[in-house]
Simulated assay, not measured.
Amino acid sequence: MENCGAYLDTLRRTAPLVQCITNFVAMNVMANVLLAAGASPAMVHDAEESAEFAGIAHVLTINMGTPSPRWIEGMVAAAEGAAAVGRPWVLDPVAVGATAFRRDLGARLLALKPAVIRGNASEILALAGAGARGKGADSADPVAAAEDGARRLAASSGAVVAVTGPVDFVTDGVRAFRCANGHALMPKVTALGCSLTGIVGAFVSGQPRLEATVAALAFFGLAGERAAHGAEGPGSFQVRFLDALHGLTAADLDRGARVEAA
């Protein structure tokens, strides 16, 4: 896919307001990642206001990482509020296959029609109703094993489905792309995967869902590659990663994106 940088340019020009319903671990990291990229994060999750705020935000992201009954009320209300005003929302089905509670929640959120679903291979397989070998929030399945399930899930749900891993796979059920950007240090920093969901949301706001999702993954992965240069380990990598997100230009992304049709 060409011109990934154009999607980054649009994000920075529009600075979309991204409503993030995410887990306790991810909030601070996710907010900083979105700010560094050029978006405007808002951590609004309570049911008393989440639906109303979804009508204000440009895009909504929902992460299932630390669900509770009250938070679930906020998730559902926000997804319904976004739908009422035609705003897209992104689902991150964290550990959806781990427990019956999470499986039921995943099915309930899927029925509310997310625009994009982003997860690891085990999460996508579980959400698609296939066998998965997830270990908590971590994947025990390779991305390649989830490609057929991702296509089926995209076709049945109407969502763009992104399976993230060493080489990401993204499909709308008809077209598909692979993105090979990234670095091995990225999974060593907690909440970076959750933060990627926020970046996908920021890119998707006002832009074609499939192409914008691919561009988001390439941008995030390329920042990881740049941050790894000179990093001594996960601690210094995390700081350098925020700087890399902030410093990457559209031209950098066009040159560095490793994306191909699948």
Rank of each mutant, 00 (worst) to 15 (best):
G5K: 06
G5Q: 05
Y7R: 03
L8G: 04
D9F: 05
D9K: 14
L11F: 02
A15G: 03
P16S: 14
P16C: 14
F24H: 15
V33M: 04
V33L: 03
L34C: 06
L35Y: 01
A36L: 02
A37M: 02
A37S: 08
G38R: 06
A39C: 03
A39K: 03
P41M: 01
A42H: 07
E48G: 13
E48Q: 15
E48R: 15
E49D: 11
A54S: 15
A57C: 07
A57R: 10
H58R: 14
T61A: 11
M75V: 04
A77N: 06
A83W: 08
A84P: 08
V85W: 08
V85P: 07
G86L: 13
W89D: 03
L91E: 00
G97M: 03
A98T: 06
T99P: 01
F101G: 01
R103H: 06
L112I: 13
L112F: 05
L112M: 10
P114Q: 14
P114F: 14
I117P: 01
R118G: 04
S122C: 09
S122Q: 11
S122V: 13
I124K: 09
L125K: 15
A126Y: 03
G129S: 10
A130R: 12
R133T: 11
S139V: 11
S139G: 07
V143Q: 05
D148M: 14
A155W: 03
A155R: 15
A155V: 10
V160A: 02
T164L: 10
T164E: 04
T164S: 15
G165K: 01
G165V: 11
V170T: 07
D172K: 11
F177D: 00
C179M: 07
C179F: 02
G182Y: 05
H183D: 15
H183A: 06
L185R: 07
L185C: 09
K188P: 01
G193V: 11
S195P: 00
I199K: 04
V204C: 13
G206T: 14
R209W: 05
A215W: 05
L217A: 10
L217S: 09
L217F: 07
A218N: 05
F219K: 12
F220Q: 08
L222C: 10
G224C: 07
E225H: 02
E225L: 02
R226L: 09
S236G: 04
S236V: 08
F237P: 00
F241D: 07
L245D: 02
L245E: 05
H246Y: 09
L248I: 14
L253C: 11
R255V: 13
R255K: 12
G256P: 14
R258V: 11
R258Y: 01
V259P: 03
A261D: 00
